[in-house]
Every structure is written in structure tokens, then in C-alpha cells.
Design a protein around this nucleic acid. Structure first.
Lengths: 137, 137
DNA sequence: TAATAACATTAGTGTTATACTAACGTATGG
DNA sequence: CCATACGTTAGTATAACACTAATGTTATTA
């Protein structure tokens, strides 16, 4: 057990998730890809990436941005929480697009440990409403 | 249906909930009571109260602070969401103190409408883990 | 090779939310 | 009348977010 200081902001969360989902075969993303995905200007994206870097979640060199091991783990954890709540919301009758949006507002605030317990409570679905696996990756 | 711009910050949420829960018989709270409850200095509390006032959720005159009708409704809504998630967390095996803390991190981010759907999904408990009623007040 | 296009980065601003201390105002009860 | 209690202002600070404009840097291409 390390520390409980996993805290990221909403924007940092978005960046982390983008990096995790858009990175293919270990290739870094360009800063402008991140900026485009997040719908902000490059200088704004740079600030966010730097905050992630200062937390040990990303590394950035010459506009090439990659997640560190720690950042990748954090993103995986966020996605587990995300898909858990997304599933809960869908099971409750909320549309999957709204479920996804709402889950994104809270997935970085709830510890993975608690999400795993909730996952059991909602009958341990193996995939989220989009068909993505919950619990590995 | 009015607008979907119900957004409050975490601190504003805390203040709103404090006002709702500590106000008795319609009596306003003193600024310093709010400051004490939120563990901040009076000038800080004043700033938060003023932001609430600018959103139409509170009124403040000479250090006496009251919720408006709209603020009271917003607080009620937050508490419904809060108790819904608190119940979910407890049903999942999370201790009630942690459930309460975690619920407080997200209760102001999830629309009441969605919480009501989740409430059904988790078997419509009538009271939260602290015994407070869910769904009226 | 020199020019240009594409991109990153810096510099400089601005906003909002949060929080503090210190100073000041005001009112009330001794 | 004065001390106490309280609110309020003023002033400072930090962090996150976001922008434009200017400046570097790199790589392609003409």
C-alpha cells in the first residue's frame, strides 16, 4: 500500500484517460493530439501534461507524451471505476451516453477498492455498456 | 424544466448542506457557525456564502445566513443523491463513515433524476445508513 | 541549401475558487 | 465608556484552467 494521494483534477483525469485509450503499441502521443482530443489549445494541454508529469504519471519530451507505469496504472484504475459506474447507471435505466458522461465526472474521485465492492453488488458484469472489459485491460 | 446549470463547487456544496442540516425552525445561521462547521476562517466562509448568494441559493445580511427556497431545494436534492450513494456503498460492504465521505465527493455532481433511477436499482431503501429518510425531508 | 510549414514552447494575461492574516467597523452589554 | 464579539474589507497567495501572441525547433520540400 503506497499513499492515498492519488488525487487528480478532472482535466488531468481526462488527459490520463485520453493517453491511455489513444496510445497504441506504446507509441507516445503528440501534444497537439492531446490538445485536439481535449478541445483545448496546445499551451493549455502542455500545462495539464506538466501537472501529470509532476505527479509522476506522464513524461514529455519534445512534444511526445507517454504515460509512465504509474500513470498507466492510475488510468487503468480510473477506467475500472468508470466502467463500474457506467454499468450501474445503465442497469438503472440511464442511456449509455449519459452513463458515460456522468461516470466520467466521478470515476477519478472514488477509490478502485470501493468500486470493486460496488461491482460485486451489481452482479459483477464483465464488460461495460460499450463492451469494454471491466477489471483487466 | 429550467436550466441544467445547477453546478456548485465542493465547498459550496458543503456550505449548502451545512446550512440545510444546521438550520432549525427557519432561523438563519451566523457566519461564524458556518465557518466553524466548515473549518475555515470567517472571511473564507463569507466568500463561499457570497458565491452561493450570487447563484440565488442563499441570502446574507449582517452575518445572518439563510438558504433561499432554491438553495433549500438544491440542498434537498444533493442529500437525496448523497443518501442514495451512501446506501449503495453500504450495501456493497463499505463502512458507513467511508460511505458518507465518498458520497459527499460526488453527490453534487450527479443529477437527482439519475440518482432516483439508481435508488430503484438498489431496491429503494427508505432510509440512508444513518437512518435519515431518502426521498422527502 | 534555403524556405516554409508544422509543431512545441514561452511569455504574458485573465478568471475562478480557495484560504489566509491584519486591519477596521459596529454593536451590545457591562 | 469601553471591551468583546462579530462581520467585513483589504491585501496576499496559490492552484487550476484557458487564451493569444511571439518565439524556437525541426523536418520536409522545393
Amino acid at each position: 500500500m503506497v499513499g492515498v494521494a492519488n488525487s487528480v483534477t478532472k482535466r488531468e483525469r481526462d488527459c490520463l484517460v485520453n493517453l491511455k485509450e489513444k496510445t497504441r503499441a506504446g507509441f507516445p502521443l503528440r501534444l497537439h493530439e492531446i490538445a485536439d482530443a481535449m478541445e483545448v489549445k496546445p499551451p493549455t494541454a502542455l500545462g495539464i501534461v506538466r501537472r501529470l508529469a509532476s505527479k509522476g504519471y506522464a513524461e514529455s519530451k519534445g512534444g511526445m507524451v507517454i504515460l509512465t507505469e504509474s500513470g498507466s496504472a492510475r488510468a487503468r484504475s480510473i477506467l475500472l471505476v468508470h466502467r463500474t459506474f457506467e454499468s450501474l447507471f445503465c442497469q438503472s435505466g440511464i442511456s449509455s451516453s449519459i452513463a458515460c458522461r456522468e461516470a466520467g465526472e466521478i470515476d477519478f474521485l472514488i477509490p478502485e477498492k470501493n468500486a470493486r465492492l460496488i461491482l460485486k453488488r451489481i452482479d459483477s458484469p464483465k464488460v461495460c455498456p460499450h463492451g469494454k472489459p471491466i477489471g483487466d485491460a
